[in-house]
Design a protein around this nucleic acid. Structure first.
Length: 502
RNA sequence: GCCCCCAUCGUCUAGGGGACUAGGACGUUGGCCUUUCAAGCCAAAAACCGGGGUUCGAAUCCCCGUGGGGGCACCA
């Protein structure tokens, strides 16, 4: 039998990074076993479903490179893959359980339930589950309530004694006493199923073989197992994935509880935030695979092609963890370094445009090799390359910025003048010629015959940025005309200073 | 309150009785290189939660604590 796994998000908004990790592990597992990865939408809570969320989730998965074999858009043998469109199926099986004596109708209202819970709390009994008072309703009493037109739900008749053992692929056997399991609602009064029913029914009919889901589902696993046995169905293999904690480790990472980690890294929780922050899908995949699982051989950086064959459920670390954001930063930088200049130019362009820069690949290309080693995120291109797009946002230079103890004003003036003349007159405005010429000029005018000090002043004169790409690449990217303009300004500034000094 | 899970450097992890003076990575610190910022290279500091067992031998197995987390909805 071939492996079939599913990722079953609720369309309540964006795709959470923890869910993305769950999706990734499911996907890796499916790919490893040449099985199917199924996308199913669990939208049975109509109050929480938000329009457009399904599309957002698919977009994020797609961006991450996690392709699914069956799903709402792709179809498949179990179409539809959206639970509200399968409502009749769940109702049918809920009724079947009632007929078989495995479930019953409950007429207690939400208010009554709530009141009883509060009373139990007050009596210091702590939280207690449903008291099962409708479980033993006589047929007459039930008929009476029915006749009165009371709303009802269908509850599972959980076994009252014995124990249920969950065999978890990551943790081994987990034993639960059955008297700890309450009679969960299977079908809500609005006719839609709860997670428990829909999940079990779908996983059965979709022939899901392995369920990789978050740790928080462990305590409901015995309920699910009992459901399988009531139905007479074969349960799948369970593997509960460790939770992703928030940066302080004080709970599940849900919404942003702090803006920065202790290390000073920005905290992101939605996949789209990672994308907008300039992270690469390859880096994010690698990063997520490393949280809770490790490649082995002391390797941190690897491709999915390399990781998939090694991926084993048994190797997943059961301990919950925070996200090492700073490691993602590093990984992303590593992947950026590996990119081809043209590829990087294309990747960086949308971020520049978002910042209001009209960037074309042709302009970007000359600085890309220099940018590769400088960027950890695509967004960083904005600050580095501002000088290419916004003359008015550059800093205004003073004579102090343009001179140095090894390059006094008079020499600076002479050097800049030569540089300007070169830019104005050269036939060859290319990286190599620029470099040779400018270095030679620098060596001639510094007191120690080293170009360094001049190159630094020159970079400032050309880029007008304290932090920028290196000089020569910047000159090429800026282009001859604009470089010349900036050098003219510089020469004029120095000329005033020198004449004043004289 | 009840049930369940988890526990190695700051963080992510390797480790599944002797090869552990506990390995790697990120981060941090120092150095080299250097036209800024990076990158790169080198080096350093940094951990087995506590207590009992089992064993010739325990980070590794068991028990008890402690700590952290999850669940206990007509939410998933």
């Amino acid at each position: 039998m071939s492996v079939r796994v599913r990722f079953a998000p609720s369309p309540t908004g964006y795709l959470h990074i923890g869910s993305a990790r769950t999706a990734l592990y499911n996907w890796m597992f499916a790919r490893k076993h040449d099985g199917q990865f199924i996308l199913r939408i669990e939208d049975t809570d109509q109050k929480r479903s938000v329009p457009g969320a399904i599309e957002m989730i698919m977009e994020d998965l797609d961006w991450l490179g996690l392709d699914w074999d069956e799903g709402p858009d792709k179809g498949g043998p179990d179409t539809p893959y959206i639970q509200t469109e399968r409502a009749a199926l769940y109702r049918k099986w809920a009724e079947w359980l009632v007929e078989q004596g495995h479930a019953y109708r409950c007429y207690c209202t939400t208010e009554e339930l709530e009141a009883r819970r509060r009373a139990a709390m007050a009596a210091r009994e702590g939280f207690v589950g449903y008291d099962r008072r409708c479980r033993e309703l006589t047929p007459e009493a039930a008929a009476e309530k029915e006749a009165a037109g009371l709303e009802c739900v269908i509850r599972f008749k959980a076994p009252l004694e014995g124990e249920t053992v969950v065999h978890d692929a990551i943790r081994g056997a987990i034993t639960f006493a059955n008297d700890q399991i309450t009679d969960a609602v299977l079908l809500k009064s609005d006719g839609l199923p709860t997670y428990h029913l829909a999940n079990v029914v779908d996983d059965h009919f979709m022939e899901i073989t392995h369920i990789l889901r978050a740790d928080e589902w462990i305590s409901t696993a015995p309920l699910h197992l009992n459901l399988y046995s009531a139905f007479g169905w074969e349960p799948p293999v369970y593997a509960h994935l460790p939770l992703v904690l928030d940066p302080s480790g004080s709970g599940k990472l849900s919404k942003r509880t702090q803006a920065f980690t202790d290390e000073g890294h920005e905290v992101f929780v939605k996949v789209e935030e990672f994308r907008d922050a300039g992270y690469l899908p390859v880096a994010l995949r690698n990063f997520l695979a490393n949280v809770g699982w490790s490649f082995g051989e002391d390797r941190e950086k690897f491709t999915m092609e390399e990781a998939i064959p090694r991926f084993e459920l048994e190797d997943i670390n059961p301990a919950p963890s925070r996200l090492p954001y700073s490691k993602l930063e590093w990984l992303n930088g590593q992947y950026i370094q590996e990119m081809e200049p043209l590829e990087l130019a294309h990747a960086v362009r949308p971020f520049l445009e978002a910042a209001g820069f009209e960037a074309d690949v042709h302009t970007l290309l000359p600085v890309m090799p220099a940018m590769k080693v400088r960027m950890k995120r695509l967004t960083e291109a904005v600050d580095f390359l501002r000088f290419l797009f916004k003359d008015e946002e550059t800093i205004s230079l003073t004579v102090d910025d343009l001179t140095h103890k090894k390059l006094p004003a008079a020499e600076a003036r002479a050097a800049f003048t030569e540089a300007r003349d070169f830019v104005r007159e050269t036939e060859q405005y290319d990286l190599e010629t620029i470099q040779q010429t400018i270095v030679a000029i620098g060596e001639r005018h510094t007191t120690n015959q080293k170009a360094g000090p001049f190159l630094g002043r020159m970079r400032l004169a050309v880029t007008r940025q304290q932090v920028s790409p290196p000089l020569f690449e910047s000159m090429v990217a800026l282009g001859r005309e604009r470089t010349l303009e900036r050098l003219e300004t510089t020469v004029n500034l120095l000329a005033e200073e020198v004449s004043e000094a004289a």
